[in-house]
Design a protein around this nucleic acid. Structure first.
Length: 578
RNA sequence: GGGCCCGUAGCGCAGUCUGGCUAGCGCACCGGCCUUUUAAGCCGGGUGUCGAGGGUUCGAAUCCCUCCGGGCCCGCCA
């Protein structure tokens, strides 16, 4: 059927049924619609449901072609997957910009010159806590590492994160706040801020219940005597110097020292609310994701926007606020040790899954992560999205479009062209506990139809998943999903078997040696056998598990036995009733 | 005091920006199947006042207003 208004590819009617069924219905219902009105309904284009990453990229392109996307975190402890929103989103926008014909560069900025307000986990436990107390109020970069393998506190917490970024397909330039201050690059902007201290104070006071005092300066000097940053109050400034007194703060005492800090040499820093817009100016930031704490009215983004405009004469970046991630229902917190880090993620889940986790829902939607059983669902969901992407699973056009984009954003780099062969993670958790070696695992996977004529990369993916499954079983799985084939027959297990159960096992051993079974055949055979020897099926199952595992339940039996070495199973069953 | 998010099936959620096809997905559940299923079974089934009320509209889960419930953030400091 050809419809005249379909000439424009965009102006497709939403659906035909609306047109065909809708109008008569409306007439029947007594509505007197003018043709124009009907046409407007008909011409309604298919709604273009864009992923929020693309929406951000599109908005940026309206402003210009080249963009700098910022992300950054205060290195106040372990950097966890909640923090990843920042850098993952920044990188996602960069990628989307590129796809839309723009240019983007993303960076990650370590706020490593901020003072330590609280001793983070795990340094807040035992004797370490005592040792680290003295560093309260000092910049992170000047605090030693608890582990000699790392240069300092910042290296200790940030390096595992930074080094993992590549594994997640993140391409960002790394900056260090401390280094930037020490290099003198912030000197000019610091001077500008000091010159406009009154203006800045007025901006900040708009949102403060307790106004900043007269003579307040937006600068935190580093005390040359005690090395603290949080304790000083800036009194005045001249040339390149800010004079200060080390008075103390609410969480740590000052040393009383009075001195001068050279702001061209990194002897102090701008206070956060001013530092942020100064950084936008310095690095030409045009887009930045940030946590909802900054996004609140009167928060640092609001004041930063005004300071940027009025003091630094630049525009605030396009904001992408995001919600936080909780871990098993608790708010992730590096200081309290409620963390799940990137290296931890890689142990138990594929990197694509974390990207998927972040990009699947809107940024301001709170996310909940649970590495336990819920991770299985995440795997299944990811696999499903992948299958929809490759057209192996049917989905509505709208859903398909949405899934495809999320799938693309979840890829580390290029989106695979051909369908990927996946081992279902749930099966991987069983296989990894019984497989003898890689060759064996492959043959099992092939015999199950989970791998068909696998390529090298299919095999690689399968082993990556098996390795994740192994780690997951040992670290996050509930006890009932863990099992270990008993090295020798446990006498305790034998004692728990009835005479009939023993007979059943002996017979099963005989049957196994007389012919081959597929897993399903074997499973069915167990039922038949139970009946033959006068047992209820569950009793025979229990016997099998007791003999093999030393406990009463285990993975699906036919499956399980056929993965084990046949000779071993036969002799184990025979052993039960010598 | 201000702001944000959430409220849709038993549970977890998508859909809301940009109103429109029969409100969808996963898990759970229910029924059936191979005489029999413990952990890759297979097939079938939606079990729903879209938090409440009002408004706009030919049409509202979707837009507007009010309210209720839950969570979080800011108002010190990132």
């Amino acid at each position: 059927m050809s419809l005249p208004w379909r000439s424009s590819s965009l102006a497709r009617p939403r659906t035909l049924s609306v047109l065909e069924g809708g109008i008569p219905f409306m007439r029947l219902a007594g509505f007197n619609l003018t043709p124009a009105k009907i046409l407007r309904v008909q011409y309604k284009p298919t709604s273009v449901r864009m992923h929020w990453i693309d929406r951000a990229a599109k908005a940026l392109l309206k402003r210009g072609k080249k963009h700098v996307i910022a992300s950054g975190i205060s290195v106040s402890g372990h950097i966890h997957i909640g923090h990843c929103n920042d850098v993952f989103i920044a990188d996602g926008v960069r990628r989307a910009l590129k796809e839309l014909g723009g240019e983007g560069q993303a960076f990650w900025y370590a706020d490593d010159f901020d003072p330590m307000r609280r001793i983070p986990w795990p340094l807040n436990e035992g004797e370490l806590a005592e040792r680290y107390k003295r560093y309260l109020g000092m910049p992170y970069i000047n605090i030693p590492s608890p582990d000699s393998k790392y240069e300092n506190f910042v290296d200790y917490f940030a390096r595992p994160f930074i080094e993992s970024l590549d594994d997640f397909g993140i391409e960002v330039k790394i900056y260090s706040g401390a280094k930037i201050y020490q290099s003198g690059k912030m000197a000019e902007l610091t001077k500008t801020a000091l010159k406009h201290a009154n203006k800045i104070r007025a901006i900040l006071n708009r949102y403060r219940s307790k106004p900043l005092p007269e003579g307040w300066l937006p600068y935190d000097a580093l005390c040359e005597r005690c090395g603290r940053l949080a304790t000083t109050r800036s009194l005045s400034w001249h040339d390149n110097y800010v004079s200060y007194r080390c008075e103390g703060s609410d969480y740590v005492a000052g040393c009383g020292h009075e001195g001068e800090a050279d702001f061209t040499k990194g002897q102090g820093k701008l206070t956060w609310r001013v530092e942020w817009p100064a950084r936008w100016k310095l690095l030409g930031v045009t887009c930045e994701p940030f946590g909802k704490d900054h996004a609140v009215v009167g928060g640092s983004y609001d004041t930063g926007k005004l300071i940027a405009k009025q003091v630094f004469k630049c525009n605030a970046p396009y904001p992408v606020p995001y919600e936080w991630v909780s871990l098993k229902g608790r708010r992730m917190s590096s200081s309290e040790g409620v963390v799940f880090t990137l290296p931890q993620w890689l142990e138990t889940a594929e990197p694509e899954l974390l990207r998927y986790f972040i990009f699947r829902s809107k940024p301001m939607k709170a996310k909940e992560f649970d590495p336990g059983l819920a991770l299985l669902d995440l795997y299944d969901e990811y696999d499903l999205v992948e299958q929809v992407h490759f057209g192996m699973v049917e989905a509505s056009a709208r859903r398909k479009k949405q899934f495809k984009r999320i799938y693309q954003l979840s890829q580390l780099r290029e989106t695979p062209r051909r369908p990927v062969q996946r081992v279902p993670f749930r099966f991987a958790t069983v296989l990894t506990q019984v497989m003898r070696d890689e060759k064996h695992a492959i043959s099992v996977l092939i015999s199950r139809g989970m791998l068909t004529d696998p390529s090298e990369s299919d095999i690689k993916l399968a082993f990556r998943r098996l390795s994740c499954a192994r780690n997951w079983v040992s670290k996050h799985a509930p006890e009932r999903l863990r099992f270990k084939v008993a090295e020798t027959l446990l006498t305790e297990a034998v004692q728990r078997l009835t005479k009939k159960q023993k007979q059943g096992l002996t017979q099963l051993a005989a049957d196994l040696s007389s012919r081959d079974f597929t897993p399903i055949e074997l499973h069915n055979h167990i039922y038949e056998l139970a009946q033959r020897v006068g047992l209820k099926a569950p009793e025979l199952f229990k016997a099998i598990y007791l003999a093999l595992l030393g406990r009463e339940s285990g993975p699906r039996a036919g499956n399980f036995i056929s993965v084990l070495d046949k000779g071993f199973v036969i002799s184990r069953f025979k052993e039960v009733a010598p």
